[in-house]
Amino acid sequence: MLRPKIIGFVCNWSKPPEIQTSEPSGFEGHPKIHMIQVMCVGRIDPVIVLDAFVRGADGVLMVGCPSPDCHYVEGNTQAKFKVKMLKKLLALAGIKPDRLLLDWAHMTDVESFVKIVDNFRNLIIAMGQSPLNGGDSSDDFLLNLRAAKNTASDFRLRVLTGREGELTQAESVYGETIPANDFDRISELLTRMEFIRHKIHLLAIQEPVSVKQLAERIKEKPSFVLCQIVEMRRRGMVTLDEIKGTTPLYKGLEV
């Protein structure tokens, strides 16, 4: 693969001034890295990252300031939590989490910056192109990525991600600290459930489907799918469309 499609989000305060970011040129020697400058990596909404993958990115690189140098105090910490969640979602979507990298650089250290970019680019070349850009099951990957993107815009998951630092490092509203392991378990479960629900939702929007069809399509147990349908009906994501014989069909509602 000669020209991997890589999107770089780089923070205003860590990017060496020598590096050009004007779209779409990237910088010298690496014409196919699209470098987008932002004020802080903490600003990068997970939805944007997933959108990049949906649009066919082979890799996404995020570069910010190392702790404790964040210009906005804890934008970089927030970015860490977001990337952690994003990697979970990528894994769920069948995309290798290594295709997303968050790294740190100093405005004054061009060499390190270039090295980060080079290494990432080489890694992506070694991994090959995104499954979306070829292969038999690219439709599946697209569905997965779109579900992941919708999941990342879910209020609940965003709340949880936004509070990770507070809850695991400082304290909860009860004055307790949640062990990082416990938190990971909770957020992992929530991420997985929301991902599956959004996937079901996308499928049910295409056409009315049954629990069994869904189970087959997403390779989960029908009993588990039914539980998700129950929750999705409660939230108004799907509704009963019709009953064919003994099989209820559900259709997705626009949310």
Partner: peptide
């Protein structure tokens, strides 16, 4: 209730006969 009043099998969401 959870199934909107329809009797369904928890294993696969089918209507029992």
């Amino acid at each position: 209730g959870p199934y909107g009043g329809l009797a369904l099998r928890p294993s696969d969401g089918e209507v029992p006969r």
